[in-house]
């Protein structure tokens, strides 16, 4: 019989303590971020989809079209193309597309790139209506950013 009353007593005590905690939090400050009105700045190392880096001297990309990123990507979502320009040792980049629907953001491409031509972008609002909208043409994005 004693277990019955002890159970009853410390049971009600635990219930009361629980109510106290939730009341303390109810009158406490709100900690949530109101997303559409307020947004968080992304941390420097946040891994968004990759983007071409603008070389300050030449003003365009640094890519030497070696295709290392294309080979090392586990899901094969990078296609790179370039053509020889006489007189210039380095190939010129003509096409750099990233199929973001298959990208797993592992960062192997950024790590393996010898010329540090690509880095992680910081945007995350990537809602879109069609799958094709996610095939980014990074070269065009680089120009748009400059323009």
């Amino acid at each position: 019989m004693s277990g019955y009353f002890r159970d009853l007593l410390d049971g009600t005590k635990s219930l009361a303590v629980g109510l106290g905690i939730t009341f303390k939090y109810m009158v406490g400050p709100v900690i949530t971020l109101q997303y559409p009105h307020q947004t968080l700045p992304m941390q420097p190392r946040f891994r968004g989809h990759i983007d071409l880096v603008r070389d300050p001297e030449t003003g365009t990309d640094r890519c030497i079209v070696c295709g290392m990123c294309q080979k090392t990507c586990p899901s094969g979502c990078i296609t790179v193309a370039g053509d020889k320009v006489e007189g210039v040792k380095k190939k010129a980049l003509t096409l750099y597309t990233l199929d973001f629907t298959k990208c797993s953001l592992c960062g192997l491409c950024v790590e393996v790139c010898p010329a540090d031509a690509i880095t992680f972008s910081k945007d995350y609002n990537l809602a879109g209506r069609s799958r094709e909208a996610y095939v980014f043409d990074l070269k065009k994005r680089l120009e748009e950013r400059k323009g």
Binding site: T22, Y25, Q43, P44, R45, S104, L105, C106, L108, F120
Partner: peptide, 28 residues
């Protein structure tokens, strides 16, 4: 309610790990 409290703590932790690794859940 405890779900929200636990996620509150977990959010701080995920921000810490995101600061270092760059990802929140699927770290590489």
């Amino acid at each position: 309610t405890p779900l929200l409290y636990a996620f509150d703590d977990r959010e701080i932790l995920l921000d810490l790990l995101e600061g270092v690794t760059g990802a929140r859940l699927t770290y590489c």
